[in-house]
Amino acid sequence: MEKLIARALEGDHRSIARLISLVESESPQAEIIMRKIYPHSGKAHIIGLTGSPGAGKSTLADKIIAHFKSLGKTVGVIAVDPSSPFTGGAILGDRLRMQQHAVDPDVFIRSMGTRGSLGGLSRSTQEAALILDACGKDVVLIETVGVGQSEVDIVKIADTVGLILVPGMGDDIQIMKAGIMEIADIFIVNKADRDGADRVATEVNMMLDLLGMRPWRPPVLKTIAERNEGVEEVVSEMTRHADFLRRSEEGRRRRWQRLGMEVEEILRREIAAMVEVAWEKEKSPELFELLAARKTTPYEVAERILGTILTETCD
């Protein structure tokens, strides 16, 4: 394990890939890995790309990779696709549009299934991003599934969130409904050669006006990803946003908030594990009989278990 982690930190793709798998499948070594990896992370610019299916996320990601590359950056990509809720299987096809970078030693692309996580972004997405960060990728690009909760959840992981809209897809209504205006740092109107692109851009700007003054006013950019038009500007705005976060009070607030969430998340997980163990021990047919006959209450049982946990941990 030590060796594997060391090789990954040197940037070896095979080792990085293996670490991500171990973390993703929640193997017993996952925690050891993350403890070792964590100190090396915190250097990468983590970017989330979100937007409805068909918005052109993968095509845009492909072009964004190329632009960062031309700036001399190394890039890690995590592309999330939905897993089947019935079989747990998944077809992960996002990287298809990025395959020109497959043989580039400075680019690492990893596909992940949602594996039952409701938000579409699992805990392992964040851990995979941390691994890529620690293993030397300057930029980590996360492409979300683009439906449901994932559009909001991405803000918990990414420094910069790019929201992709397409004219004529009813995205405007979508935005207002989901309330994701607040989380996007950059708005990208893709397929801008279609009718209505200007209208979408104007509407977004008007909604941003309604939100009032904020330290970072999200730019609204137009792209035609397929023809690589407007992508350079997207990349330079992303970089500008990273600079803003580094220098501003807002950036510090966000970093602290995220670090706080990371601690809370681990706490919750640890406690949940303890609770599970203790509850397993306590469970018995007799207890259920008592509960059913109302001779005791779930509150009393919980209180007792909590007591046991506390004394055990204090010993």
Partner: peptide
């Protein structure tokens, strides 16, 4: 996929 595997296409 229907057999529960993750397929990278």
């Amino acid at each position: 996929r229907d057999a529960g595997m993750e397929v990278i296409y």
